[in-house]
Simulated scan of single mutants.
Amino acid sequence: MQNLLNEDAVVPRPRGTLPKVCATVTAVTAMVGVWLVSPERLFGWVAMAILILTLGPLLHGLCLLPEEILHHANTRYRCPPVLSRVLLACGLSGRTVPAAGGAGLLLYLVGQPLPDLSHCCELLCLVSALYPLVKTLGVLGPSEVEVSDICEGRKMNVAHGLAWSFYLGYLQLVLPRLEESIAAFRASHLDGPFQGRGSRKLLILIPLNANISQKLENEDDNISFYDNLPNVEMDRAGVRGRVFKHSVYTILDEQREGGRECVVEYATPLLTLHRMSQESSAGFGETERRQQVLLFYRTLRDILERSLECRNRYRLILLNDLHENEPHFLSTVILRHLQQQEKEEFCLTPPPQQEMADPFLYLNHQGLMSCEPSLMFSSDKPKPLKEPVENSDA
């Protein structure tokens, strides 16, 4: 496995507004071209085009309406008002109806008939009637990018649910108690880990291939199990004293020296993603699994960054599967993160000292600064303020 140092090159960013900008530029360019050819008919053509584009979806929504009312109104739309929810689900409200009404009003206000108005009306009726058929057959169905954008925008991906479940059902419960568990572990292991400088965070491994081993030592023989932290027990979902635990591992370098202990584990929801990709009924292939793992990492990172309870108690490690055949790569990655964490948390070099022109003066300053602070009183009597002297030319 390879550590992804440059995560921005791998983790997908949320989709932006560039498609809207491109669509706006294309529409403005087309309208400018029509205006140059026939400026007096610009608004008429724009109104007719909008009518053609909006009446089709409205007719398609009317085709969806009977199915929803007859067979799904009582099961899918139980929250009142049922009718308005059905209309909204079929696309018969929102932006489509006002757009069609505004286009019709604009066409009426233009007042100047378009050339061959009867032919334009025939085209309007024919295109609007054929749109529901073409749409129902899937010819005008949404692309994968559109579906992905909708799912990410409405938080409908599998990764979003797994990330929130992992946070609310596990990390939010155990991370605030991690320091107490480590303190209890130190008290029972006086010669063990966490006595000096060391990682007191939970290292969470997130491999892109979602292939998780049940024991870390099976992945890398430079990693060995040391002990478990004290169990965290709490009443959860009707279970009295549900147990949560963390494992401490010893990480060796390439020379099998310099053992470092840390609390590390895989993100358990990735087991679900891996099993789903192996079930044909889930419709979840390897490509979709990798995409969902990246979305899981991005969602979990955003959630934890906003969590006050979990701040400075975790470290996410995103792993690639390009070097999964290297025997000691996982230990190398973990050690690299531990070293980076120490550099971030501890100052390894003394603060720079300014050079003084006179070293004895420097020592005197050091002596004065090291003395206990004391109050100094003056024995001189207070003097009046100096009166202003008038200095003006006669």
Rank of each mutant, 00 (worst) to 15 (best):
D191W: 09
V174N: 03
G192E: 03
N218V: 02
N209Y: 09
A210I: 09
T268H: 09
Q195K: 11
T136P: 00
G198M: 03
Y167L: 11
V139Y: 10
G241S: 13
L178I: 04
E217F: 12
P207Q: 07
V139Q: 05
L216R: 03
G238F: 01
L271K: 09
I204G: 10
R197H: 09
G169A: 14
L252F: 13
A187T: 01
I212T: 01
D235C: 01
L126D: 12
R154I: 02
L202K: 15
S199D: 14
M156Q: 05
H189C: 05
L140D: 04
G241E: 08
D253G: 06
D149F: 06
I212G: 00
V248C: 14
F166I: 01
N209E: 14
S224I: 06
R186M: 06
Y131W: 07
V248E: 01
V158N: 03
N157S: 13
Y167I: 02
L130Q: 09
Y249F: 12
Y131Q: 13
L175A: 11
L216P: 00
A129F: 13
R260H: 05
F225K: 00
I206F: 15
L202H: 09
L171W: 14
E146Q: 15
I251H: 00
R260Y: 03
L123P: 00
E144S: 09
L123E: 01
R240E: 02
G259K: 02
N157A: 12
F185H: 08
P132L: 06
S199P: 05
D235Y: 12
L202N: 08
I251K: 00
V263Q: 10
N222H: 14
Y170F: 08
S213P: 00
L202T: 08
H189W: 02
V127T: 12
S247Q: 12
R177F: 12
L171C: 10
R154L: 13
I223H: 08
S199M: 12
C125Y: 15
A183R: 11
K201W: 06
P269Q: 07
R236Y: 13
G196S: 11
E144W: 04
C262H: 01
M156K: 07
E180I: 08
P142F: 12
S188K: 07
S188F: 06
I182T: 08
P176L: 15
E219A: 14
E233W: 15
D149N: 09
L190A: 10
E219C: 11
G258I: 01
E152Q: 02
V134F: 12
L203D: 01
Y249E: 00
L203C: 06
G238A: 04
C125N: 10
L124R: 03
L123W: 06
A163N: 07
A129P: 00
C125Q: 09
A237S: 10
T268S: 08
L175G: 06
W164C: 06
V232R: 12
S165A: 07
F194I: 08
E152D: 15
Y170N: 07
E144Q: 05
L123T: 07
H160R: 10
S148F: 13
V158S: 09
K245F: 14
L270K: 08
L203E: 03
V147L: 15
K215C: 02
R256T: 05
P193K: 13
C125P: 00
V232D: 09
G241A: 10
G141I: 07
